[in-house]
């Protein structure tokens, strides 16, 4: 199991357009990726390819989330996803 901790950079948080961009990127991967808030257990993690799950997570600007994935290419995939969350997607 690979794991990454990342701070949400988008000023509006992981909502609306940023959530859409992120969910689409996850959906394109051949792996299952989960997302949880920093203080939540891995059991409560949600499907990161679901815009509805991301929205219900309610991660705001500055919150730290944990991404998890398993299998071949998990590390590379997570590194790419971290870059997305570290960008202020709403500013683009």
């Amino acid at each position: 199991m690979s794991e990454r901790r990342v701070t949400i950079a988008s000023r509006v948080g992981l909502h609306a357009r940023p959530a859409g961009i992120f969910a689409e990127a996850v959906a394109e991967l051949p792996l299952e990726v989960t997302i949880a808030m920093e203080d939540e257990s891995a059991d409560d993690a949600m499907d990161a390819s679901s815009i509805l799950s991301l929205m219900s997570l309610g991660a705001a600007h500055g919150d730290v989330v944990v991404l998890r994935a398993e299998g071949d290419g998990a590390d590379e995939a997570l590194d790419a996803l971290v870059k997305i969350l570290e960008t202020d997607l709403d500013a683009e």
Partner: peptide, 16 residues
């Protein structure tokens, strides 16, 4: 456009 993009994603959303 933004509304339609988000709705399109919801239509294929794994949770749903």
């Amino acid at each position: 456009k933004a509304v339609l993009e988000a709705t399109a994603l919801m239509a294929a959303d794994p949770l749903l």
